[in-house]
Design a protein around this nucleic acid. Structure first.
Lengths: 153, 153
DNA sequence: GTAATTCCTCAAGCTTAATTGAGGTCAAGG
DNA sequence: CCTTGACCTCAATTAAGCTTGAGGAATTAC
C-alpha cells in the first residue's frame, strides 16, 4: 500500500480547513465544540475531523450571533436539528422561523424605543411608572395583550 | 440650634435614595461614578450627595443601555451636556437625536437580516462571498453609497 | 446613648465569547 | 530523517458591566 487515501480530498475537514473556509479562528471552533455547538470525531492521532455540515452549522452560528442571540440559545436551537441524518433545507428553515419571531420582537422593541426617544428624553417624564421608555415591563406588552407596533407577524 | 436642616427634605440625594428612586443598585451608581457617567460631591463624613439631575442622567443611562449603547459611548454623549448649568430639555433632546440615527441604523440592519433569514438559511448559499447574511461588509452599505432599506432618516 | 441602618473603600468574582501562550504531538515534504 | 507547519490540551487573560464581600465609619431612630 504505497499511499493512503489523501485526507485533503476526502470529505472530512480538519479544524484549520473549516476555520479558513468560514473565516473564524481555530480557537473559536475549539470553543464552540467545548460549548456543544458543533461536533467532531478524532483521527488516530487525536486531531479533529468534521463532516461537511459543520460549515453550515458554523455559518448559522455566525448569522445568529449577528442577530444578537447568545451562544447558549443558539446551541439549544441547533440541538433541535436531527442527529441521525444530515439536516436538510426544511430543518434549517425551521430554525430560521424560530429566530424570526425573536427578531421581529426585537425590531418592534427598538422601534418603540426610537419612537418615544425624543418625546421622553426631552420631557421630564422619565419615571419608571409613567414613561414608556423607562417601564421595564413593556417586554410583557410584546407577547401579552395590548397594542402592537409594526409587524404583528 | 436644636436641629439641622433635615437631609431627607433637602434637594440633595444620598446614594441609597437615588438607587431606590430609579431602581438601580447602589453598587451600580458607584460603578457609573467610577466610569465618569455621574458626579457627586461628598458630605463632611465622606458620603456621596447628588443633585436632582442625577435622576435624569441615570434614567437616560438606562434607556441608552436598552438601545444597546455601551457605557463608554453613553459617557461621551453625557459629556456633551453643559457642566456649568443644569441641562434643559433642549440639551437632552440633542442627546436623543444623537442616538436616534444610531438606532435607525440598528433597526435597518436587523430588518435586513430578518428579510434574508429564511431565504439564506433555507438555501445552500451561506457563503461569505455571495450571501447577504454572511457578508460582514454590509456594515459599509449602511453608511456608504448604495440602496437603503427602511427609514433613510 | 446605643443599636440599627446606611454608607465608605477596595478587592475579588461573575458572565459571555473568545484569544493568547506554554509546552508538547502529528503529518507532510525534501 | 528531520524540519516545518498544523494540531493538541490546559490555563490564563481580555472586555463589559456589574455584584459580592470584608472591614470599618457615619447617620438615623429610639
Amino acid at each position: 500500500m504505497p499511499e493512503k487515501i489523501r485526507p485533503r480530498i476526502s470529505r472530512e475537514l480538519s479544524v484549520g480547513e473549516v476555520a479558513r473556509r468560514i473565516g473564524v479562528a481555530v480557537s473559536a471552533l475549539h470553543f464552540y465544540e467545548s460549548k456543544g455547538l458543533i461536533l467532531s470525531h478524532r483521527t488516530a492521532g487525536n486531531q479533529r475531523r468534521y463532516g461537511r455540515d459543520v460549515l453550515r452549522r458554523v455559518a448559522v452560528i455566525k448569522v445568529a450571533q449577528r442577530l444578537g442571540i447568545p451562544l447558549a440559545t443558539i446551541r439549544e436551537a441547533l440541538n433541535t436539528l436531527p442527529e441521525e441524518r444530515t439536516p436538510n433545507a426544511s430543518d434549517w428553515r425551521k430554525l430560521s422561523e424560530h429566530w424570526r419571531s425573536d427578531l421581529n420582537a426585537r425590531i418592534r422593541k427598538l422601534t418603540q424605543l426610537r419612537d418615544h426617544l425624543d418625546e421622553c428624553i426631552g420631557c421630564g417624564c422619565l419615571s419608571v411608572e409613567s414613561c414608556p421608555l423607562r417601564n421595564p415591563f413593556d417586554e410583557l406588552a410584546e407577547t401579552g395583550p395590548g397594542p402592537r407596533l409594526l409587524d404583528p407577524d
